[in-house]
Design a protein around this nucleic acid. Structure first.
Lengths: 218, 218
DNA sequence: CGAAGAAGTGAAACGTGGTTCAATCCTAGC
DNA sequence: GCTAGGATTGAACCACGTTTCACTTCTTCG
């Protein structure tokens, strides 16, 4: 019985798979999911079209994997940024928004693809999962902030979703490859600052509502 | 020279066109834009596939027309609902949100299609226009409210977008045909009430303390 | 080396809708 | 009724990516 799977072959296979994923990720980050065509992926990493199908059942599954990897990377970054701000809800919310918005504006095509680009249902399901994760993160900050009176008493679930919505919608214009943007001409940092202001006002108790942090002048 | 265009023929043609549009509208309201296939449209109003192309250049243009009609109808309804509330910014904002959210929740598939369903770039352009119109409407309420001190001094453009985003995102879960919804189990009216609360908090001046740090950006 | 069988190739088949167009049906005016 | 020319039909066509699969190349081990 010749041929046996061995360390070398397994490693090579994993490498191949990783290569395909990397190629796909790059294409997505450059041209969106629509641009990640099987032929393009194969070509990018110098293999044949058919090979892709020995590593992935079909395109959707491949794209879903790409989505998962990219999105979880982003989520981890936002979580890290938030955690780095310490335990105080005020600082955590500030960091959350700035990390999220900042990263999105720095990698626009990717952010747009992850947040808004039309995708197949399978990938959309993946997106829903991550959207939930962001809402959850916002909610947990919110809950802590309500407990210590930083934020007003409120429907946490709704406020979480609404806040993610407010942030996203404020960014769509800038991220969309074919933009509309009623916010043209404004500097990115101004936008982010104003998003922070908006969210703090939206979540804080009217009576206490303190000025948000890190307010540099434009 | 036999055959001449006449009143009767013209009327019949317009009727045909209107029929096609109505069929398409119904299909969109029932199955989304993806469900409005040319064959389905033709079948629905008992004509041939080919005929569609004597009335519309191509599918995208037809769908864009459908979008325009449906969206402008919705927009008009929201405008009317808002106007009916009188001149006071507080009541206008309240009416705006309730009309918008209420209609969306009453016609979910249509609302979802108009707001979120993946569509071709041509239709997406149409969507952008209407989204802008809603943002504009929100902005005008906001501006008036700032003038009479109902609302806080703020970046009107951003707050308008963010507010539309907050409302939309709070609704996606309920509208999405394949839902995620972290807000399951809550009653529609509760949701709408809480959206109103959220938006008012987001836009209103803190009752006691004066305007926040960052002054309005034009 | 040679056999067993996995890895890899890429051209052709497929699926899905939109779009065309030659053939046919109608309508208006004589 | 007849004709010119528009209205209507629907099967064939096309576009375009995805997926398959018969074939070739490579890897392992006795």
């Amino acid at each position: 019985m010749p041929y046996r799977e061995t360390e070398a072959t397994r490693r090579r296979a994993e490498e191949r798979r990783a290569n395909l994923l990397r190629a796909a990720r790059d294409l997505v980050a450059r041209h969106g999911f629509a641009g990640a065509k099987i032929t393009a992926i194969a070509e990018t990493c110098g293999t044949s079209v058919g090979l892709v199908y020995t590593y992935f059942d079909n395109r959707d599954e491949l794209l879903a994997t790409v989505f998962r990897e990219s999105a979880s990377h982003e989520l981890a970054a936002v979580r890290a940024g938030t955690a780095a701000a310490g335990p105080a809800p005020r600082e955590r919310l500030d960091a959350f928004i700035r990390t999220f918005a900042g990263r999105a504006l720095r990698g626009r095509q990717l952010a747009w693809s992850l947040l808004f680009e039309p995708v197949s249902p399978l990938v959309e399901a993946e997106r829903l999962t991550y959207r939930r994760a962001y809402v959850d993160l916002a909610e947990s900050i919110l809950r802590d902030g309500i407990a210590d009176n930083t934020f007003a008493q409120q429907n946490v679930g709704l406020s979480g979703a609404a806040t993610i919505g407010a942030i996203s919608e404020s960014l769509v214009g800038r991220l969309n490859p074919v933009g509309y943007d009623g916010l043209d001409g404004l500097d990115d940092t101004v936008i982010v600052d104003d998003i922070v202001v908006y969210c703090f006002r939206a979540l804080s108790a009217p009576s206490t509502s303190p000025a948000p942090t890190r307010q540099e002048t434009p």
